[in-house]
Design a protein around this nucleic acid. Structure first.
Length: 135
DNA sequence: GCCAACGTTGGC
DNA sequence: GCCAACGTTGGC
């Protein structure tokens, strides 16, 4: 099972919104590298949910409930979307600052390429982040 | 609000 | 097909 990290601006769609909605279509990704990651997602894959712009922290865990399908919001039909459902919030948010300070996360894709909105998380990185969250 | 990173567009 | 200009994202 693969693991991922997605970013969302909480003012637009926060983890609490996902909890309220039960599932959401993760569309609007218009970046090829991010789209490749979306296409690689499988049902059951786990996803860290990161708040960008405000909060600047991983706040919860979500799960892939539907694999890549055409993004209805893309008129050109080139990009894909997936469907996500909430799993649980982290006990404590893990801030970007804390992640940057952890040598175990030096290679984390979202740190190395900060603008990537969907990125892979390795097993060791996943474990490190959950440990920091007290989970 | 600024700026760095980086992807995309368009002229040549 | 190159590359400069431009737009967007996201941290600070």
């Amino acid at each position: 099972m693969a693991r991922w990290l997605v970013k969302s601006e909480p003012a637009k769609y926060a983890f609490a919104d996902l909890q309220r909605d039960g599932t959401t279509v993760w569309d609007g990704v218009r970046n090829n590298a991010a789209a490749l990651h979306l296409k690689a997602m499988k049902v059951g894959d786990e996803v860290l949910y990161y708040h960008s712009q405000e909060g600047l922290a991983v706040v919860g865990i979500a799960r892939v409930t539907r694999e890549a399908f055409p993004d209805a919001t893309d008129p050109a039909g080139r990009f894909v979307a997936v469907e996500l459902a909430p799993v649980r919030p982290l006990k404590q948010p893990v801030t970007l600052q804390a992640m940057k300070a952890n040598p175990a996360l030096a290679d984390l894709a979202m740190i190395r390429q900060s603008r990537l909105s969907v990125s892979p998380v390795r097993d060791g990185e996943w474990a490190a982040i959950l440990q920091m969250a007290g989970d």
